[in-house]
Amino acid sequence: MNATLLIAAHEWRRLRAQPFAWTLAAVVLAFMAWQFLLALQAFVDLAPKLGGLKDAPGVTDLVAIPLLRSLSNLLLPLVPLVTMRAFAGERRAATLPLLLASGVGNLRIVLGKFVGAFGYVLVLVALVAVMPLALAAGTTLDLGKIAAALLGLALFAGALTGIGLVCSAWASQPALAAAAAFALSALLAVVDAGARLQGVSNSGINYLALPTHLEPFFRGIVASVDIVYFVLAAALALALATRRLDTLRGSAD
């Protein structure tokens, strides 16, 4: 097993041993299950009226996609809580020298931490996705649209995980890392709000905003420009985190 996967597997083992990770997962799943049941009930109530409409929205558009969109909003505060300890927690507990003295390069350490945290978030996304997918037993779902939405969510979560990691590498306290990551992610989520209020939707500032690239996935559109945006955002964040580890090696911390 290479060092990246070894560190990632170790991160999962550590998460598994922490009540924090289980509690966070339980809270997220309970909240999303509640939202799912509310959306399902609303759909059941609305279904008779929809029957007479031409091209009426189905359960995918009225239950599955709104649920996944709601999960994307929840990921903004959730991912920083998962990533905050990656480096800031190691520094606070004085355990970072274990990795720094292991001869494993900084990039591999960062990638290992990324895969570990991203894997946890993906498991949560997958567990939430099971809720609408379970409806396939009794109705017809637009699986292509749901797959596109899940791909978008995964890319979005990857970018947020990268942002969380770079904040954890720069901050010396986990709480500070979480706050900084949330602030940065929230800023990227609303950075084009002013432009949109003015009716501008294709300017440079719109391109910077996370929802600009996530929304097409929820409409079933998979565009390479959106994939590249999320991959670039994650890659840039991981490069900055690696650069930060280089600096930490040279500091007195």
């Binding site: 083992r13 550590r14 020298p97 003295a101 292991s102 494993v104």
Partner: peptide, 25 residues
Amino acid sequence: YLPETPPLHVELDAEEYLRFCARLH
């Protein structure tokens, strides 16, 4: 290398932790 503060992952037991250290090295 043993730093001044032992770099222990306190949520794991000694065997799990040492297995990771061995593989890491």
